[in-house]
Write a protein that binds this DNA or RNA. Structure first.
Lengths: 228, 228
DNA sequence: GCAAAAGTGTTTTTCGTACACCCATGC
DNA sequence: GCATGGGTGTACGAAAAACACTTTTGC
């Protein structure tokens, strides 16, 4: 949660919040977008991106609105993770918070938004101490991501629409925090007909150049086989 | 959700509820405990067991309290499933509901409680039309159960503390709704050292009798290998 | 010509699956 | 003695894992 503006309104009503766990990928590492609170309470401390759910919006909509407010991105694949409801998880109010996770292309998250929202990317291995139970939220979301990324083609959200296989493998190694065998990895990829090789090569990371691929959602719908 | 007593109190505040999906096992079928609402609104319709979360209780506690109120059972393994938050999921009020699932030993659920709460067991293949989005909740909980039951030793909650391997296999077949090969099933079970065979036999279901086993939680903690 | 990253096959092991008969007992 | 459910082992194929060298090109 966050957006804690009405501490005075202690009317014995539970408030409902959403917290967004926003993953990015950079420098071969899985990263997380956090914000440093500009105001009291908890001013100056690191926090997830969150806000109170409005009376007239779906829970999912609230998550999307908050993500949009903070990143400017729309149509991002988001999934609900878990709801945190301990009485004292937030010291000054009774707020139950549902977490959602999203994966965004870090390069699309403009620098001015970073500044406006006092945001910063952190490698998941270097998450600072966060307010309330946000560190727990992060831990659970990361575990869930590692599980899901093996069985669903969601990691592509962290890459440009055209990507190379070395990039894809580095992405998986970064998310799972383990090294993968190149040949085994590529054999699996080659069975995914919805990963289509383009004629272009990306020359930026090697002299030889690596073929670019794209994820074809339409083709994926036909097979729906994914396992890495 | 349910316990919808304050429709007049439309103070633009989101209310938080918990709905419990209570699984049982009987007659080789996976069953679900439902209640027929005694009062308006939605009087006479089938519903999950649910209630409003109190200001002073943890979300998990609320789920346990509601389960206890309805089943008299304590210390039941419960897990949060998902939070449902569409604006119009409930027609007369804005209620966000978190579902929890539990597995109880049907024989321990006393008949007088069944009557007091207007409850009834339904095989999961014969769930009636439920109020609000409760059918969606049930579908999601069943899918999740089928996934988790293969990877975690949770199904034992549906059996007495001493059980036979034929019983265990029938349980899995009922939950997964598919038949399993007896020898393959038993091979996997024999690798689980925390399933300890007792000297006793259960003679009630065959002339020869079948050895009783028990699940040893302490031994499981040492290995934590489970796959069926 | 060499450094640096891209790309490619084969072997071994592990796991899942299919499958059929004997055992113990109550009647 | 036979009907009923309990209990056991093996062979095959698929998938995962281990493993090393060649290719391309900019410098």
């Amino acid at each position: 949660m966050s957006d804690i503006n009405d501490t005075e309104n202690n009317n014995q009503q539970i408030k409902l919040a959403v917290d967004c766990i926003i993953f990015g990928f950079n420098d071969n590492k899985l990263e997380l977008l956090l914000i440093k609170r500009k105001d009291n309470p908890e001013k100056g401390r690191w926090s997830l991106i969150g806000g109170i759910v409005s009376f007239n919006e779906d829970l999912d909509e609230a998550a999307n609105r908050i993500l949009f407010d903070l990143s400017g991105l729309e149509n991002i694949y988001m999934e609900q993770v878990k709801t945190f409801g301990k009485v004292n998880r937030c010291s000054f109010d009774r707020i139950v918070s549902t977490t959602y996770s999203a994966m965004i292309l870090k390069s699309r998250y403009s620098e001015d938004k970073i500044n406006r929202y006092n945001a910063q990317w952190f490698p998941v291995t270097e998450i600072p101490e966060l307010i309330f139970d946000h560190n727990d939220m992060v831990d659970i979301a990361i575990k869930r991501l590692r599980r899901r990324v093996r069985n669903f083609p969601i990691a592509f959200n962290l890459l440009p629409s055209k990507f190379t296989l070395p990039q894809l493998q580095a992405l998986y190694e970064g998310i799972l925090n383990e090294t993968l065998d190149k040949r085994n990895f590529r054999r699996k990829v080659s069975q995914m007909n919805y990963l289509v090789r383009l004629e272009e090569k990306d020359m930026s990371e090697s002299k030889r150049g690596a073929f670019l691929y794209r994820f074809d959602a339409g083709l994926f719908e036909k097979e729906k086989n994914f396992s890495l």
